[in-house]
């Protein structure tokens, strides 16, 4: 491994973690990401055994997951593999596909609710213009948060991930933190 020491998207040595009442927001620095797009004639790749999901959906396997990002395009996530060249690994499972390393392109914030469910919905209603009735576990959308293009993934009833451009990590954190703090005060 290189002797260079990475910093987080928020510019620190260690990932940020903060709690707001029952909500916890954690910067996930271990998440490896790579995009996968079908080329002409390629059918049905099953990277890491995953069945690639359809529009608006996210599917998870053991540590690995895929979300639909566009027609014939997906983002593949691998928990804890950020240190490796993930694209190179994914390529072996995706013959005939265009694969691009995306790990450093994004900051991932995991928002977990420790109790209840309303606060999570309340938080999301301040951030994204998505009908939450249609945003249960397994749903994922790219949308705008405060003019920043983000992927929002409903990992479970009590867990949402927000992936934003790494360069705007601080602004995205501010948006999430502000909304969470205001919720806490209610």
């Amino acid at each position: 491994m290189s002797e260079l020491i990475p910093i987080t998207a928020l510019g620190a040595a260690l990932p940020r973690l903060a709690s707001f009442g029952a909500l916890e927001i954690r910067e996930n620095v271990g998440l490896a990401l790579a995009s996968l797009a079908l080329r002409r004639g390629t059918i049905g790749p099953r990277p890491f055994g995953l069945t690639l999901p359809g529009p608006g959906r996210w599917i998870a396997g053991q540590g690995v997951a895929a979300l639909w990002t566009g027609p014939d395009q997906w983002m593949i996530e691998y928990e804890g593999r950020a240190d490796l060249g993930f694209a190179a690994e994914l390529k072996q499972f995706a013959a005939g596909c265009s694969v691009t390393e995306q790990t450093d392109g994004w900051v991932a914030f995991e928002i977990v609710l420790r109790a209840g469910s309303r606060p999570l919905e309340a938080l999301l209603s301040k951030l994204i213009n998505i009908d939450l009735a249609d945003f249960g576990p397994g749903r994922a959308r790219r949308t705008g948060i405060e003019h920043m293009s983000c992927f929002v993934i409903r990992r479970s009833e009590a867990h949402v991930a927000v992936l934003g451009a790494r360069s705007s990590a601080a602004s995205l954190w501010h948006a999430l933190e502000t909304a969470a703090k205001r919720l806490e005060r209610k």
């Binding site: 990002t69 027609p71 790219r142 293009s149």
Partner: peptide, 9 residues
């Protein structure tokens, strides 16, 4: 229309 903050379709 371009779905810029979406699926880029």
């Amino acid at each position: 229309w371009f779905h810029e903050q979406g699926d880029r379709s």
